[in-house]
Design a binder for these strands. Structure first.
Lengths: 344, 344
DNA sequence: GCAGTTAATGAATCGCATG
DNA sequence: CCATGCGATTCATTAACTG
């Protein structure tokens, strides 16, 4: 039986219907490499502008706030050391209610879906305390048949004292745009299980069937196996607190995680979208793997950190500022601008 | 912010309100060890009877059908070989709709919750395609604050050809009865990560904090570490097709999985409830670990297989037959009885 | 009737964990 | 080291409905 969720719906008092909004415009600021676009502004508004301009992406990776109820800050890092004096606002993860949080996210998911190529996919990175609500809502947006995978990212961290199992995983919900069409997918492999290796070495097995067509046994072949096809539970270390990879931006995701996702779900030259760009790990991996990118973040410092990381890879991303239709000033001077000039 | 789901509710046309039903009665059949009770009959009806008799359990493990849309069968196994000629009905996993499936399960969850000790917990073992709907519904039954863990069971299996990540995990949703009270919990440990072992060996680390109370570094201590506290992602092998552990019953769960759960969530002598008993793996582990058990299954062959497995451990479980109030015959003869007599 | 959609059936598959 | 069995796979095909 195909999983159909027709009729099952998540509701709450005052849940709004989606409705169109007027779009803003993008103003170019600096940079020369149009394969890497960083957009400073509200992501919902940016997604509307991008939709109107006809942009279509192979992969959208969304790493939104996790409903922690906290305001998250970032620290400057110089020579691998944090400088506490420069602690600044990164993003606000305080919400009036679970409903408000879900509404905000599902609106972005809905807008992002419009930007997917027919063979494209969306990956929503969340926490196992909210993933279930979001899965139900995303099933409503995409249709349950478009659900592809619940990817479990298993990491290791400093244990906390609790009368419960340590929470050591995040959840990545993957949806394809069109379930009828084979999605972009490159088969990756992981090492064989120890027991298989012990029994079979790295030789492929072949099923042996008898005259009546029933299988009787397996046999070893001369062919070497590349490993077992990659599963949906990924054991990847977090970015260690002292790692060189650290940017000082909170909730930074490891490059290995993004690399696996981008390699699996896109081809060389494909366009990747990240509406919650943060310190730009997605951008770094895209630059390294030859994928094009659009990253959006409402925080000026995030854009600056991402720009520096990309500059270190000899990339010069185009930077744009989103002008929303109701903004009075055409291109207001903002406080961060001076510091950016120094940085650039 | 504590996760509150007040106001968010899963609905569908015709979703029923829970309502009380008249209870049946249990009729004793055979067996002498009242620490192990096997009940043959509909589990919802059995849960009502148990509630009325005042039974309270420390752990309820529910392993319901996974919404596969198939009828599952079992085969006889003699000397580790399957005999195809004896293929028989095990359980029916065909449903009119997702709604019907959810309704059936959530009713059992609601009834099971009533049987939990204040410090007890319920674990619902499901599939990542339905886990999200069930989590939303269970949050409604228990309150979101009672949600303890999403446990991910990662296993290894034969890969299938698909343009997607191989699905290699199940989900176990754990809820505590009373979030205000410390639940039964025994801290288990797993081996340290390879990188930790390389740096620290098996010595415990101690956080070193400076005068201002901020942590500056860690130091090695003389104390040996028992490992890292057990996480919520469990890597446990499936029961191999040729393993001695195999019963011939479909969807059999490995003893290692139940052992970890039961050891963590119960003390010696505690009562465990399994309303979807199947071939009785929960019972085998309970008998081995000195826990008491109530297992319920509507399939006569399942009860028979479970009884045999327990007999092999020198246990003689009490077997009961549930008589529902609307049943005409007081204790009807059933076909399986003769074969059971031979077995017993 | 016929096209279109859905459900049931059959075939292919190879890594895993025993014995 | 070698033999063994198989699937809470997935994919393709056929059969059975529906309008």
């Amino acid at each position: 039986m195909a999983l159909s969720n027709a009729g099952v719906r998540l509701i709450w008092p005052g849940r709004p219907e989606p409705h169109p909004k007027s779009v803003g415009e993008l103003r170019h600021r600096r940079g020369s490499d149009a394969n890497l676009r960083l957009i400073h502004g509200d992501n919902a508004a940016a997604l509307r502008v991008l939709a109107q301009s006809g942009v279509r992406v192979a992969l959208a990776y969304l790493d939104p706030p996790f409903f922690t109820g906290r305001e998250h800050t970032l620290v400057e890092r110089r020579n691998g050391r944090t400088d506490e004096s420069t602690r600044a606002h990164a993003f606000d993860d305080r919400w009036d209610s679970l409903e408000a949080y879900l509404e905000s996210l599902v609106e972005r998911v809905r807008l992002t879906r419009e930007l997917l190529l027919p063979e494209g996919c969306l990956v929503l990175h969340v926490d196992p305390r909210t993933s279930h609500y979001l899965k139900v809502l995303c099933d409503e947006v995409f249709g349950a048949a478009s659900f592809a995978s619940e990817i479990v990212w298993r990491y290791r961290r400093w244990p906390s004292k609790t009368r419960n199992f340590q929470r050591v995983h995040d959840v990545l919900l993957r949806y394809v745009r069109d379930p009828e069409r084979p999605p972009r997918f490159r088969q990756l492999y992981e090492p064989l299980a120890a027991s298989t290796l012990a029994t079979w070495g790295n030789r492929k097995q072949r099923a042996v069937v008898d005259a009546s067509g029933r299988r009787v046994r397996s046999s070893k072949t001369a062919e070497a196996t590349p490993g077992t096809p990659l599963g949906d539970v990924w054991d990847i270390g977090i970015v260690a607190p002292v790692a060189k990879e650290r940017t000082g931006y909170p909730t930074q995701k490891p490059e290995a995680l993004l690399e696996r996702l981008i390699t699996s779900c896109t081809d060389l030259g494909d366009l990747v979208l990240d509406p919650y760009f943060g310190s730009g790990t997605t951008g770094v991996v895209c630059a390294r793997l030859g994928r094009r990118l659009i990253g959006v973040d409402s925080n000026r410092r995030a854009i600056t950190i991402a720009r520096r990381r990309l500059a270190a890879l000899d990339a010069d991303p185009v930077e744009e500022r989103l002008i929303e239709p109701d903004e009075a000033a055409p291109d207001e001077p903002d406080a961060a601008r001076a510091s950016l000039s120094r940085a650039g």
